[in-house]
């Protein structure tokens, strides 16, 4: 990345300790506006901790962190207004309808009635699910649910969206359609911060960071990483980086 880009996340010397255990050990990185940033790492490497801190849910032990231009210690309310969040585990309420979900999340993010009505209509038109407006989420096929969940996560036009393993266990077609949506969002200028266990998905990111044992072991574009470790794909990059340390600490 030679050209000067506007940053949306700035992390300097982030440390998060739980007792003696350093879950995040001096992380420093930047995420640029409009990019798709892949956040990879083995289980327990500290990804979830870092995401929780960036979303303003946890306070770090030390470090300077700015998200969407706001300070992580003092301006968590503003941060929450400017980010979207979606995880594999929870996205939409299954026992209420499509429209009720949209209305609910629109309300949570402080959209006015007209805004909600307009964006809901717009969203359902774009996803071609107008006929399912009053159907329960639980009755929708998985692929639709996922598309809808993502659209709802960016309903309030956040500057930045966090996706925590959004595609785990999903069939290959749905998974790809989901990435089409991610690209679309990035194209509109929304920054995407995504974690995944699928290494082919790491290839779709503009830049990826790989965490090992609470540190960022490497961070670059997928092609630069592959060149550096002289391997063919991101899976091998990941294995090379993560395998350096003994398995017990995993």
């Amino acid at each position: 990345m030679s050209e000067q880009k506007e940053t949306i996340i700035t992390v300097k010397n982030l440390v998060k300790k739980f007792g003696d255990f350093k879950a995040n050990d001096n992380l420093s990185f930047e995420v640029f506006k409009g990019e798709i940033f892949g956040f990879l790492g083995a289980n327990g490497a500290g990804k979830t901790t870092a995401i929780k801190i960036l979303c303003g849910l946890w306070v770090p032990t030390s470090g300077d962190i700015k998200v969407a231009g706001f300070d992580i210690y003092t301006q968590t309310e503003q941060i929450k207004k400017n980010i979207g969040y979606m995880s594999q585990k929870f996205s939409l309420y299954e026992d209420i309808t499509v429209f009720e979900n949209i209305r609910l999340f629109g309300g949570i993010y402080g959209l006015s009635r007209q805004e909600i009505a307009q964006r809901a209509a717009d969203l359902m038109h774009r996803l071609d699910i107008e006929h399912s407006r009053d159907k329960l989420i639980s009755s929708l096929p998985l692929g639709w649910r996922q598309k809808l969940a993502f659209s709802v996560a960016i309903l309030h036009n956040p500057k930045l969206v966090f996706l925590d393993e959004p595609t785990g266990g999903v069939d290959p077609v749905t998974r790809r359609k989901f990435w089409d949506q991610i690209y679309e969002a990035a194209d509109k200028g929304i920054t995407v911060f995504v974690t995944t266990h699928y290494m082919d998905e790491a290839e779709y990111c503009d830049r990826v960071s790989i965490m090992v044992d609470g540190r960022i072991a490497d961070l670059d574009t997928p092609s630069a990483l592959k060149e550096k470790y002289s391997v063919k794909n991101m899976n091998e990059v990941f294995l090379k980086i993560a395998r350096i340390k003994p398995d017990q600490n995993n």
Partner: peptide
């Protein structure tokens, strides 16, 4: 499921 690439291998 839910296990990283190294452990999977």
């Amino acid at each position: 499921t839910g296990v990283d690439a190294v452990s999977r291998m």
